[in-house]
Computed example of a mutant assay.
Amino acid sequence: MLVYRITPKIYSGSLFAPGLEGRWNGNGRKVIYTAESIPIAFMENMIRRKGLGFNKQFAIMVIEVPDKLSISEVKMSALKSGWRDYRDYSICQTVGNKWYDEGLTPLLKVPSSILPTNFNYVLNATHAQFAEIKLLHTSELIPDERIDDLLKRYNPK
């Protein structure tokens, strides 16, 4: 299976997990967020840009996950109301932290909070099988300038 990540080019040369808090993990848990497609990876990244826009410093990472690796899945029906709230990650972090701490599988399949019928994959960089996941290649991200203009005009209140 291929998964995709959009990240600043300076981080695109390896599968690096800094351990920063995210929707599905608490601080200190080393995970990498990926998506089932480039468009979903783009949308996920775009929504987090918060007015900063994109530039030529971003890359698309194409990552190969061997089909033999086990995947845990979070069904939308199992999530409490409010799980998509971008101001409060506590519902998702509780689920993701439990998965990470149990360490049973190297991947967690989760619904995208932006487009919930699509999926993201959270990779546990400390799992024993993580070494089997490979960065195949990177390519430059060149979004339409209208998207960059739109993001720069966005000003969250």
Rank of each mutant, 00 (worst) to 15 (best):
G51H: 10
K109Y: 09
I47A: 13
T94I: 09
Y89I: 02
S81T: 13
R87Y: 15
Y86G: 12
D88I: 02
D101H: 03
A78R: 13
P66F: 03
K109F: 09
K68R: 09
V110F: 05
E64K: 02
R87D: 13
F54L: 08
L104D: 14
I60V: 14
S113K: 07
M76F: 11
K109W: 09
I114F: 05
S90H: 13
R84C: 09
A78S: 15
S112M: 07
E73S: 09
L69W: 07
G53N: 11
Q57I: 10
T105E: 14
Q57M: 12
V65Y: 04
M61N: 06
R48L: 12
L52D: 14
R84T: 12
K80L: 13
R48C: 10
T117F: 13
P106I: 02
K56Q: 10
I60H: 04
Y86Q: 14
M43L: 15
V62Y: 13
Y86D: 15
M61D: 06
E102C: 04
G53Q: 10
L69T: 02
E102N: 08
Q93H: 07
I47M: 11
W83R: 00
K98Y: 13
I71S: 05
L115P: 00
T94S: 15
S90D: 12
L52A: 14
T117E: 14
I40E: 14
V65K: 04
S72K: 03
G103P: 00
F58M: 05
R48Q: 15
I60G: 06
I91D: 09
M61E: 10
L115I: 08
V62H: 12
T117W: 11
D67L: 08
P66S: 02
A78H: 15
K109E: 11
A59I: 01
A78M: 14
I91H: 08
I91F: 10
P111G: 02
L115D: 03
S72L: 05
L108R: 02
S70C: 06
T105F: 08
C92M: 06
Y86I: 12
N55C: 08
N97F: 05
D67W: 06
D85K: 00
D88N: 11
L107F: 04
M61T: 03
K80R: 10
E102W: 07
D67R: 05
V62D: 12
V65I: 10
E64T: 00
I47T: 09
L69F: 00
V65L: 00
N45R: 12
I47V: 15
M76P: 04
M61W: 11
F42K: 00
F54H: 09
S113P: 07
S72R: 01
W99Y: 08
S81H: 15
R87T: 13
S81W: 15
A41F: 05
Q57C: 10
S70L: 08
W99N: 02
L104G: 05
E102P: 01
K80P: 05
G51F: 10
I63F: 05
I63K: 01
C92I: 04
V110I: 07
G82S: 06
G51I: 07
